[in-house]
Simulated assay, not measured.
Amino acid sequence: MRFSSIKALAAAAVLAMLATGCAKPTQSYDYTAFKRSKPASILVLPPVNKSPDVNATYGMLAQMTRPLAEAGYYVVPVALVDETFKRNGVVNPDEMQSIGIDKLRQTYGADAALYVEVEKYGSSYYVIGSEVTVVASARLVDLRNGDVLWTHRASASSAEQNNNSGGGLIGMLVTAAVKQVMNTLSDRTFDYAGVASNRLVAQGQPDGMLYGPRSPRYVKEQ
């Protein structure tokens, strides 16, 4: 009886481990403020560029509207936002993001603002490789009270698809050089910026952005 009990306990432990291993990932982000705020419209501020590539700000900004709109939010037209800032003498993204929330809400009427910072943007070349990398972080702020509703960080890189097998060292060097030329001529970074933008505000994943009220997947009870 004692041996049978041990076997039963062991079997139960194994089943518990298997159940835990197959369990769906849980959300670790605290969405309390987000759910309380229920933002319906978002103002995307021109991203602050921390990379050496001058194209980073608008490479990201141009591709932020679609994923947010598909998520169920009204997005204030980014071209209009940028032009309004410039007509009022504010031309630097750092200055744009430093404007008070009361002024932003008065000017654009949005419920929340998305503050984006580009950490990496562009291609890099090393001895036996070349890759395009885009890394960005975002912070969603309620323009009605200043609460930080959500933060996230995402990246996209050509290294995700790299395959350096075959051809030896010379082959890898030639491949890296060719990739660098292609990256420069075709501005592949813009494409990866689109991937990073989608990942940055993706929904339906652990710690991702919640769906907006225009999405059929929006949970009204939230």
Score class of each variant (00 low, 15 high):
residue 98 S to M: 11
residue 106 Q to A: 13
residue 74 Y to Q: 11
residue 68 L to M: 10
residue 87 R to M: 09
residue 72 G to T: 11
residue 119 E to N: 14
residue 121 Y to A: 01
residue 103 K to M: 04
residue 63 Q to W: 04
residue 118 V to H: 02
residue 110 A to W: 06
residue 100 G to H: 10
residue 87 R to T: 11
residue 97 Q to D: 04
residue 122 G to S: 02
residue 102 D to K: 15
residue 112 A to Y: 13
residue 88 N to H: 06
residue 68 L to K: 09
residue 115 Y to W: 08
residue 89 G to P: 12
residue 123 S to T: 04
residue 113 A to Y: 03
residue 70 E to I: 11
residue 101 I to H: 13
residue 95 E to S: 13
residue 99 I to F: 02
residue 114 L to A: 01
residue 76 V to Q: 15
residue 85 F to R: 14
residue 61 L to D: 05
residue 99 I to Q: 04
residue 64 M to G: 05
residue 93 P to A: 04
residue 61 L to I: 11
residue 79 A to K: 15
residue 101 I to D: 10
residue 100 G to V: 09
residue 86 K to H: 08
residue 67 P to Q: 12
residue 99 I to V: 08
residue 92 N to G: 00
residue 75 V to E: 01
residue 103 K to Y: 06
residue 83 E to Y: 15
residue 68 L to Y: 07
residue 99 I to M: 07
residue 119 E to L: 14
residue 121 Y to R: 01
residue 118 V to T: 03
residue 111 D to H: 04
residue 92 N to H: 05
residue 59 G to P: 03
residue 121 Y to K: 01
residue 82 D to W: 14
residue 59 G to L: 02
residue 99 I to R: 05
residue 96 M to K: 10
residue 85 F to L: 08
residue 85 F to S: 10
residue 110 A to S: 06
residue 89 G to Q: 12
residue 108 Y to A: 01
residue 87 R to N: 13
residue 78 V to A: 07
residue 79 A to M: 15
residue 90 V to C: 02
residue 78 V to K: 09
residue 96 M to L: 05
residue 93 P to Q: 04
residue 64 M to T: 06
residue 103 K to S: 05
residue 120 K to V: 06
residue 63 Q to V: 07
residue 61 L to C: 08
residue 111 D to Y: 03
residue 117 E to W: 11
residue 72 G to A: 09
residue 76 V to E: 14
residue 112 A to L: 10
residue 64 M to S: 06
residue 90 V to Q: 01
residue 84 T to P: 06
residue 85 F to C: 09
residue 69 A to S: 14
residue 114 L to K: 01
residue 109 G to N: 02
residue 82 D to K: 15
residue 101 I to P: 04
residue 118 V to Y: 01
residue 105 R to G: 00
residue 114 L to S: 02
residue 79 A to T: 15
residue 69 A to T: 15
residue 94 D to V: 12
residue 109 G to H: 02
residue 120 K to H: 09
residue 97 Q to H: 05
residue 112 A to R: 13
residue 115 Y to I: 09
residue 117 E to V: 15
residue 118 V to C: 04
residue 115 Y to G: 00
residue 71 A to L: 07
residue 92 N to Y: 08
residue 104 L to E: 01
residue 77 P to N: 11
residue 70 E to N: 13
residue 95 E to M: 12
residue 122 G to A: 02
residue 123 S to R: 01
residue 60 M to D: 03
residue 101 I to T: 14
residue 74 Y to F: 12
residue 71 A to E: 05
residue 71 A to C: 07
residue 87 R to C: 00
residue 74 Y to C: 00
residue 81 V to K: 02
residue 87 R to E: 08
residue 83 E to R: 15
residue 119 E to V: 13
residue 66 R to L: 07
residue 77 P to A: 08
residue 80 L to F: 13
residue 84 T to D: 07
residue 119 E to S: 11
residue 94 D to S: 05
